[in-house]
Design a protein around this nucleic acid. Structure first.
Lengths: 217, 217
DNA sequence: ATTTCTATGTTATTATATAAACATATTTAA
DNA sequence: TTAAATATGTTTATATAATAACATAGAAAT
């Protein structure tokens, strides 16, 4: 049976990857899979796969393995992907526009309901049938529209202010692309996408081999 | 003295955050800081900060703390940010364009040298003075230009093929935005930015509270 | 029908990551 | 000039995560 103990972030961050690989299996008409086979594809140990899945329930069958369709649907449900979400993007620079245009999110059930910016040159422009509105209209908009997720694509200087506006209106989830650590109430979840940090990590690893060379000589 | 033992990814992924917070301190003309003070700002424990930094050397002084400027420069050097890097973007859809236009990367020393796409409608268009070229020109381009980092922004179907082209030309670092796990030689580093996975994680956490409710009733 | 094999859920073990404790060098204050 | 305070680098302890081991349910084979 499913265990209601707190799931660790390490497990949670693997769930989308299970979802992706199971989706691929479905596309290839594979209807059953063992943790061992999945292990070879996905690159986690079979033991880890069984433990991860078992956090949420007993989905497999001894001697058989897992039914791919069933497991896929279950994980989709665990990830909350059966639901539909309304989103707003704040900041319609390049990143905001890229996110707005990322059609894949619509397919996943994340519906873009509004785009806001403070740049007068951008206000009025349409992105996928949605007109960019003045950021001053945001509080009013949030008051009359039911928004689940706020997507912050503004520069770091104004990110916290936007986060405050969002949380004040009752939004419980923020997808943050600004390079800051937002301070938000405990009942609000924030998921950061820090591109600069990602690039710096890459830069570090590219140079890692040289890093300790001097001292070893 | 600096230790040449293998640094864990957990530590590496915290380095950019140290860099960012130290940069903020500099902006505020704060020239010294203790692990305890930094801890309160950055949200890691003081112990962790000292251990992290000590992976790379003895940068602090007992009774004093750390010199902010010195530590900032040191971390910049550890992250390889003193160097300049040449990059190419493959795939100039919304995401590719967003990355291309992200001026911040230029400031960090990552210079965009080419953009490639297979869509004839995009070829010839200029982004920041760089003309989008036909993807068939990529191997030739890589042969005559010294590129450090390949940035993959193509759909998942063609990502592996692009990765092959890049690694064959000798590129040692890939920043991958396509939702696939690339197979690459051991001496090449890949840093993934999987936006869908990030969004799914957010979705999970938004629903987590409800997830186990049924069973508890 | 019986046996062998497969592959699960779970428990035990090992490894890794984080936090606390501490001995000591340096600063600051008296 | 001495004593108290600070804050490091390092060691020890704890917590968390990953892997391996295993008992057994069910599938496949004979």
């Amino acid at each position: 049976m499913g265990k209601s103990t707190k799931i660790s972030m390490a497990v949670i961050r693997r769930l989308p990857k299970y979802h992706r690989y199971l989706g691929e299996l479905l596309e290839n008409d594979i209807d059953r899979i063992s943790s061992k086979e999945l292990s070879e594809r996905i690159g986690f140990t079979a033991s880890q796969i069984r433990q991860d899945l078992n956090c949420f329930g007993d989905f497999g069958q001894q001697g058989y393995g897992y039914n791919v369709r069933e497991l896929y649907n279950t994980i989709e449900s665990i990830l909350g992907l059966y639901k539909e979400y309304n989103t707003v993007i704040i900041g319609s620079g390049n990143l905001g526009q890229a996110v707005a245009n990322y059609i894949k999110f619509e397919k996943l059930g994340f519906h873009l309901k509004g785009i806001f910016d403070k740049n007068p040159k951008l206000i009025g422009i349409k992105i996928r049938d949605i007109e960019i509105e003045d950021i001053d209209e945001l509080p009013g908009f949030l008051g009359k529209t039911n928004i689940d997720i706020g997507i912050i694509c503004v520069p770091k200087e104004s990110a916290q202010e936007i986060a405050n506006t969002l949380t004040k209106s009752g939004i419980k989830a923020i997808w943050n692309f600004a390079p800051v650590d937002l301070e938000i109430p405990d009942d609000v979840v924030v998921e950061n996408v820090h591109l600069s940090e990602s690039l710096m990590t890459l830069s570090y690893r590219l140079n890692e081999a040289n890093l300790f060379k001097k001292e070893e000589e």
